[in-house]
């Protein structure tokens, strides 16, 4: 009962103090708002970057050409064998006739040349299209398939894929480091601002101590105040993320420059990003206040 009474008072005091120290509250909230907008944008940018790089990586396909004299039976054995490699995600068989028809549709030149080819004298080869789970191990997987019976050529654009892998893993790492660094900077910036505002209330804290307030009951209102400041400071960044990103997505039609780079669907992505922002704002506000008050509880 007494505990609830105290908690109610602490919450009331926290709200009161947000309004009575209005200019200081505005300073803290502005700082939180601006930094969280930047953090929000960087989170969106880096998650999108990660998204489209993984999508491109998933699109990488290995083509396995078979010897011309491979029988139907050998084909089905090979399908099973390739499927049994742990790193293989999906195997699709493409007969030489399918390949021929596809090529004929691509250009009139092919059409003219290939229309003379009959069932028996099609020089194209049967092939498998193999997708792998982990693109970084694609070379090993290719090697394994190459050693199989009746496999003539395995092709996955080694040079290009290798460059892609190293470039993308670099980009992803840099993006993560940037986001983490930005969040750390944000935390310090917000904590520092709150420290400054609490410094001006050092006297208030010492008076509380002198009148007989325990450390906990001094700290809790400041903690709740920090929570409130963090919450209010997150509102604008969240609005910017939800409406801004959705508008951007709709404006660009979900892609940047070409179909190669696709953006993440706004829903539920923006809500998750908003929750992250809200969490950072409130947590940092709370931790910042609590940490700053502790300094002055020694009178």
């Amino acid at each position: 009962m007494k505990l609830f009474r105290m908690l109610r008072r602490h919450i009331r005091d926290a709200f009161k103090s947000v309004f009575r120290n209005f200019s200081l509250s505005v300073a803290s909230i502005t700082c939180i708002t601006i930094t969280l907008i930047i953090v929000g944008l960087s989170i969106i940018a880096s998650l999108n970057l990660k998204n489209f790089t993984t999508e491109i990586e998933e699109d990488v396909t290995m083509i396995v050409f078979l010897d011309a004299d491979t029988t139907e039976e050998q084909i089905s054995t090979l399908t099973v064998e390739i499927n049994s490699i742990p790193n293989v995600e999906e195997v699709k068989f493409k007969s030489k006739n399918t390949s021929k028809n596809e090529m004929m549709q691509e250009s009139d030149f092919f059409k003219e040349t290939m229309s003379t080819w009959g069932e028996g004298d099609n020089p194209l080869k049967d092939s498998f299209q193999v997708k792998v789970k982990d693109i970084e191990k694609i070379a090993d997987t290719a090697e394994e398939i190459r050693d199989m019976d009746k496999v003539s050529v395995v092709n996955y654009g080694e040079e290009m894929v290798n460059n892609l892998i190293s470039a993308f893993s670099m980009i992803q790492k840099v993006a993560i480091i940037m986001v983490v660094a930005l969040i750390v900077v944000t935390i310090f910036l917000i904590i520092n601002t709150i420290k400054l505002t609490i410094f001006s209330r050092k006297r208030e804290i010492s008076i509380m101590r002198l009148v007989g307030a325990s450390n906990v009951s001094i700290k809790i209102p400041f903690l709740i105040e920090g929570l409130i400041l963090g919450f209010i400071g997150s509102i604008i960044p969240i609005v910017v993320i939800i409406y801004g990103y959705t508008a951007l997505y709709n404006h660009l039609g979900g892609v940047v420059y070409s179909n190669l780079i696709t953006l993440i669907q706004p829903e539920p992505f923006v809500y998750i990003a908003s929750l992250i922002i809200l969490g950072i704002g409130m947590l940092v506000g709370m931790v910042g206040s609590a940490g700053a008050v502790r300094k002055y509880l020694k009178v």
Binding site: S17, N21, R203, E204, R209, L210, V211, G212, N215, K298
Partner: peptide
């Protein structure tokens, strides 16, 4: 101990030269 000072301070009243009221 520093954490327990409030136990003492609740038993006494203190008046200072500079009043030390909460301004807000």
């Amino acid at each position: 101990r520093n954490r327990k000072v409030y136990v003492l301070r609740r038993k006494l009243g203190i008046v200072f030269q500079d009043y030390r009221l909460l301004p807000k």
